[in-house]
Amino acid sequence: MGEIQKLIEKKRKDWQVDFVGLAENVAPTHAPKEIHWLYAAGNQSLAYKNIRLQVGRGIAGLVWKTARPQMDRDILTDVEKRLEYPIARTEKLVNVYAVPVMNKHEVIGVLLTGYRSQLDAFDKLEIGKTAEELASLIQGDE
Rank of each mutant, 00 (worst) to 15 (best):
A27T: 12
E91K: 08
A60P: 03
V63C: 14
V96D: 00
Q139C: 00
Q5V: 07
R52H: 06
Q44E: 03
V26L: 05
M71Y: 06
R12K: 12
L112S: 07
K81C: 11
T66E: 10
V110F: 06
N43M: 11
T130I: 10
R68D: 11
G114I: 02
A27I: 10
M71A: 12
Q54V: 00
D78R: 14
E80G: 00
E126V: 03
Q16V: 04
I51Y: 09
I87A: 10
R57K: 13
A60G: 15
L125N: 14
Q44I: 06
G140D: 08
T130K: 04
Y48P: 05
K129A: 05
E24K: 12
Q44P: 02
L125Y: 15
W37Y: 15
H30F: 11
L38T: 08
D14G: 01
V20P: 01
G2V: 00
I4E: 02
I35K: 01
I59G: 03
V79K: 15
P28D: 09
T130N: 05
K104N: 11
E91F: 02
I108L: 13
M71Q: 13
V94F: 00
L119A: 06
I87E: 05
H30T: 09
A121D: 14
S136M: 04
I59C: 08
Y39C: 01
I35G: 04
V55R: 09
G58D: 07
R82D: 06
V79W: 11
E142S: 07
A135C: 08
I138M: 07
P100F: 01
P100C: 04
A98C: 14
H36N: 13
A98R: 02
Q5C: 04
I108R: 04
L7D: 03
D141F: 05
N50A: 07
A98M: 06
G42L: 00
W64T: 03
G128R: 08
G114L: 05
I127F: 06
A31Q: 13
M71I: 09
R116G: 12
K124I: 01
Y85S: 06
T29H: 09
Q5K: 13
L119R: 06
L62G: 13
L53Q: 15
G56Y: 08
V17M: 09
F122G: 08
E106M: 14
I87R: 05
K13F: 05
G61E: 04
N50C: 00
E84M: 14
L137A: 10
A41G: 05
V17S: 04
